[in-house]
Design a protein around this nucleic acid. Structure first.
Lengths: 246, 246
DNA sequence: CGGATCTTTGACCACTCTCAAGTGAAGTGG
DNA sequence: CCACTTCACTTGAGAGTGGTCAAAGATCCG
């Protein structure tokens, strides 16, 4: 893999960073081994066993983080309890609202998620010093913006059935580690859905029941197979994409 | 105002830039007079008399732009004609998808909008050379992301009535030139709505009819007054904000 | 096995959409 | 000056998608 080429000076790289994807595809890829050493002295790894908040809206966050493994939900909550997930982040995404003490949405880890956090001020100093770091963060923000707008179309104009199909297509594209970047697999795709129906509903602006009904509709239409609640088989990813309205 | 302080060297600033807000609050504020002169040699002003596309999704855009006056809609269109407005941009916002030939949404100007466009490659070179320029663009992207996520909550979880109230609150905050940045006026607010009901509907994921009905509901609830279709009076901006679900 | 939790399914209901008609303002031409 | 068109908006009646409420299956785990 690419890591062989990049790891010529692996011995200079901090131990904790050696197997970390954020060092390649994530923001840490902008740093030299020396800078990595400097940053890694202040990092802290955390694993989440259940659904717990990484950053809440109330407390002032003093750290940023990289996702090492798992999925993190960005969610907004209304006073009466209505919830909307406004983003899903995967390894090796950067986590946290840059240049603000408080984000207006909470970052919530799903089970088995692992992150590597570091002080806000330290990263902000690095951003000033390392243009490549700002470039990476800027690009992640632009990509997240594209993605958010794609979901605005779904939330505003797609039917329940299209929403669920588009969601499954989205997950299929993000879950398959082998397809780098934009490469979309042609035929059968298989993945494990580690989000509950409630989380999917909160992402799509639907209820649990409607999500469940649309899953069975997609199953009856032979667009997906479901095994053991979470394991999804998509015979034709192309057909699923079309069912999602694009 | 701030312009007095910044305009000590006004004579060095290109004529076309002298009365331009983008030079202060927009991205051009990152540039020195010399850099402004360099950029302004390649800029082109355009005014839009009707609803016309600034950048479409099909053509590869070769320019970026600043909005000088008016409102620009970012919209997505589905194959069957369903439309979703995924962003509204106001002067002096920057326009265009950085580092991509094609955006996945069209930028459409409303009547009376004026923009200042410049070559993509030129700006991209400036970004490399002027860190403050990337910083401004990065910050605009982060703000747009916050805004997009705020609307995802509305699109996914708010009722029609909350959506329209939240929309009016949003416009009230953006239209009033006197309130800089985050300052929210306390009492009565007045503004002209230069978007049609169809545009509002496409922004909120509703139909024209539902938008119209919610306008009359808000009027009957004395949360707004409507004069001549477009002129809105809000007696209490606070009450309107609460009607919008926050 | 029993209990807890998540998911599925059904019946009913309501919010919003669809379709249709009507209103008002602005512009055109006789 | 007033019919007449046009266009955006409003209002109404009926329909349908998705929500609500309730109950029954699954799955997990003690």
């Amino acid at each position: 893999m690419t890591s062989d080429r990049l790891d010529i000076h692996n011995s200079d790289v901090p131990v904790v960073c050696r197997s970390c994807e954020a060092r390649h595809r994530g923001v840490c890829g902008a740093l030299s081994p020396e800078q990595l050493v400097q940053l890694s002295r202040h990092t802290r790894r955390r694993t989440f066993d259940e659904t717990t908040e990484v950053f809440s809206t109330d407390e002032r966050a003093v750290t940023y983080a990289n996702i090492l493994r798992g999925v993190v939900k960005l969610e907004k909550l209304m006073a009466d309890g209505r919830r909307q997930i406004v983003g899903l982040k995967f390894a090796p995404d950067f986590l946290g609202r840059l240049f603000r003490d408080q984000s207006d949405c909470a970052s919530v880890a799903t089970t088995g998620t692992e992150i590597c956090s570091f002080p806000k001020l330290l990263l902000e100093r690095i951003i000033e010093e390392v243009p490549a770091m700002r470039e990476r963060l800027h690009n992640q923000a632009l990509n997240e913006l594209d993605e958010a707008r794609e979901w605005m179309l779904a939330l505003g104009r797609k039917t329940a059935s299209e929403k669920v199909a588009a969601f499954l297509y989205f997950i299929a594209c993000h879950m398959n580690p082998e397809d780098n970047a934009a490469k979309v697999p042609e035929d059968e795709v298989t993945f494990d859905l580690n989000l509950t129906r409630a989380e999917i509903a909160d992402f799509l602006g639907l209820t649990i029941e409607t999500v469940s009904r649309q899953f069975t509709n997609l199953r009856k239409a032979r667009l997906i197979e479901i095994h053991h609640r979470t394991h999804i088989v998509v015979p034709s990813i192309k057909a699923l994409r079309e069912a999602g309205g694009s």
